[in-house]
Amino acid sequence: MTRLRSALTAARATARARRDERALQRALAAAPTQESAHEIAALAARR
């Protein structure tokens, strides 16, 4: 059971990371200026 639980936890973490990355990409694409996109990227890098 421990291996199964570990595998599920890893899969959830990977899915969460992918969702976060897609959200960041959408935010960067929707940024009104290049400077705004840079600020969004800088904030994301601080996490």
Rank of each mutant, 00 (worst) to 15 (best):
M1R: 13
M1F: 13
M1A: 13
T2M: 13
T2D: 15
T2L: 15
R3I: 08
R3Q: 10
R3C: 08
L4P: 12
L4S: 15
L4I: 12
L4F: 15
R5W: 05
R5I: 13
R5D: 11
R5N: 15
R5M: 11
S6K: 14
A7H: 12
L8T: 07
L8S: 07
T9R: 14
T9L: 12
T9P: 07
T9I: 09
A10D: 06
A10N: 05
A10R: 14
A10C: 03
A10L: 09
A10K: 10
A11F: 09
A11D: 06
A13N: 06
A13H: 05
A13G: 04
T14D: 14
T14A: 15
A15E: 15
A15D: 10
A15Y: 08
A15N: 06
R16H: 06
R16S: 08
A17D: 10
A17P: 02
A17R: 09
R18D: 15
R18P: 02
R19F: 04
R19C: 04
D20K: 06
D20T: 11
D20C: 05
D20R: 13
D20P: 05
D20W: 05
E21L: 09
E21C: 04
R22K: 10
R22T: 10
R22H: 15
A23W: 00
A23H: 06
A23R: 07
A23Y: 00
L24K: 01
L24F: 00
L24H: 01
L24R: 05
L24C: 05
L24P: 00
Q25D: 14
Q25N: 11
R26S: 09
A27T: 02
A27S: 01
L28T: 00
A29I: 02
A30V: 03
P32H: 08
P32Q: 07
P32D: 09
P32M: 00
T33R: 00
T33N: 04
T33G: 01
T33F: 00
T33L: 04
T33P: 03
T33I: 02
Q34F: 05
Q34K: 10
Q34T: 10
Q34A: 15
Q34L: 10
E35H: 03
E35V: 02
E35F: 03
S36R: 10
S36A: 12
S36Q: 09
A37Q: 03
A37S: 00
H38Q: 13
H38Y: 08
H38K: 12
H38G: 11
H38I: 09
H38V: 14
H38C: 08
H38L: 11
E39S: 05
E39P: 02
E39Y: 01
I40G: 01
I40S: 00
A41I: 03
A41S: 13
A42F: 03
A42G: 09
A42N: 05
A42W: 02
L43D: 15
L43S: 14
A44Y: 04
A45I: 04
A45K: 06
R46C: 10
R46M: 13
R46E: 14
R46S: 14
R46I: 09
R47I: 09
R47Q: 11
R47T: 14
R47L: 11
